[in-house]
C-alpha cells in the first residue's frame, strides 16, 4: 500500500529535474529531451490520480499528452534538422541570429 503522495512527489521530482535540464543544457536536442521528461513527470501524476479517483479520464489525458508529444517530437526534430543544415550547430546559444 503506497500513499498517493509518493507518486505525486516522484512526479514533482521528475518534473523539476526536467525543468533543470531545460535551463542548464545548451544542446538543443538535450533541451528537447528535458521537455519530454517534464511531460513524463506530469503523466505519472495523471495516472496516479486516475487510479485514486477511479476515473478513466486521467488515462485519456495521458493518451493525449503522448499524441501531442509525438507530434511535437516529429515537428521539433524536423526543425532541428533544418536549423542544423543552415547553422551546422546544435548549441542554442549560437542560434542567436534571425538571418545569416
Amino acid at each position: 500500500m503506497i500513499p498517493l503522495s509518493y507518486y505525486l512527489i516522484l512526479s514533482a521530482i521528475l518534473f523539476c529535474l526536467g525543468v533543470a535540464g531545460f535551463i542548464i543544457k545548451t544542446d538543443v536536442i538535450t533541451v528537447f529531451i528535458s521537455i519530454e521528461l517534464m511531460l513524463n513527470g506530469v503523466n505519472l501524476s495523471f495516472v496516479a490520480f486516475s487510479h485514486f479517483l477511479r476515473d478513466i479520464g486521467g488515462n485519456i489525458f495521458v493518451f493525449f499528452v503522448m499524441v501531442v508529444a509525438a507530434a511535437e517530437a516529429a515537428v521539433g526534430l524536423a526543425i532541428i534538422i533544418a536549423v542544423y543544415r543552415n547553422r551546422t550547430t546544435l548549441n542554442v546559444d549560437k542560434m542567436n541570429l534571425l538571418k545569416l
Partner: peptide, 14 residues
C-alpha cells in the same frame, strides 16, 4: 511541491 503534496495527500493510499 513535496511539502504541499506530502501534507495534502498523505492519508490517501493507492
Amino acid at each position: 511541491f513535496a511539502g504541499f503534496l506530502a501534507t495534502q495527500f498523505s492519508d490517501s493510499p493507492v
